[in-house]
């Protein structure tokens, strides 16, 4: 569904992503793992159009999206839940959800999506009128995911949903991610530093180091790979 070939992205003179190729088949969860500064977030930002690719091509559902601006890419059904959540802290929880449905014009559809995401994350339902800035970290992550789902995406990119959350909450978030994939058939590209968890929920994995893919394969294989064990899974 998403094919990335030889993608390179730089910040000024610094090349953060260097010739990355990967593929995410429809209906699957694929993970991109790697340490801090490996280039994971940069890759996602280039895929969603927030950053310009220096080289390479990105094809989404048969369309070349390499040079499209973010709002055109979202319109095609590719949603990006960015690192740090980036919820609108000046808006209410409900208004954040409305922003997620910004491109939908059909009111019934919006109402249906809203009740679906509130069913998925009942805690948000109790806080609809509250300013989103007052939510806890876990609730903000739920809101960020719910907001992305409001637009009826076909493809979801999640950047470190576990970041800064207590273990119990991480468990809940990851259950929801799997539920979204199973129930709604949404294709997911999951970026994580928590490799153990990411390999558990995904079908396929890519390992990024200083902007390059250094390892790739089915997640079950990588889980037992000695090199990966030493570097990311704590021996």
């Amino acid at each position: 569904m998403l094919t990335v070939s030889a993608l390179s992205v730089s910040y000024g003179a610094i090349r953060a992503v260097d010739g990355v190729s990967l593929a995410v088949p429809a209906g699957t969860i694929v993970t991109l793992i790697g340490g801090n500064g490996a280039g994971k977030s940069t890759t996602l930002r280039a895929l969603s159009g927030l950053l310009r690719a220096q080289a390479g091509t990105v094809t989404f559902a048969g369309t070349d999206i390499t040079r499209l601006p973010p709002h055109r890419i979202v319109a095609l059904g590719l949603a990006h839940v960015p690192e740090g959540r980036m919820i609108f802290a000046n808006l209410s929880v409900d208004e954040n959800l409305a922003m997620g449905a910004y491109l939908l014009r059909d009111r019934d559809r919006i109402a249906q999506n809203r009740s679906e995401v509130l069913e998925l994350f009942p805690r948000l339902g109790e806080r609809l009128r509250q300013s989103a800035g007052t939510l806890s970290g876990g609730e903000q992550q739920m809101l960020a995911i719910a907001r992305a789902l409001m637009g009826s995406p076909k493809f979801l990119m999640l950047d470190e949903p576990s970041l800064g959350l207590a273990p119990r909450l991480i468990g809940i978030i990851f259950e929801k991610i799997q539920e979204i994939n199973r129930r709604h058939g949404l294709t997911i590209l999951l970026v994580e530093q928590n490799a153990r968890l990411a390999l558990e929920v995904s079908a396929h994995a890519y390992v990024l180091e200083t902007g390059r893919v250094v390892m790739a394969g089915p997640s079950t294989d990588l889980r037992t790979d000695p090199r990966l064990k030493a570097a990311y899974l704590g021996g």
Binding site: L50, P70, V74, A79
Partner: peptide, 11 residues
């Protein structure tokens, strides 16, 4: 509040 996040919503 956040132009990048707004564009990710399709704005």
């Amino acid at each position: 509040f956040n132009p990048g996040a707004a564009s990710l919503m399709g704005v």
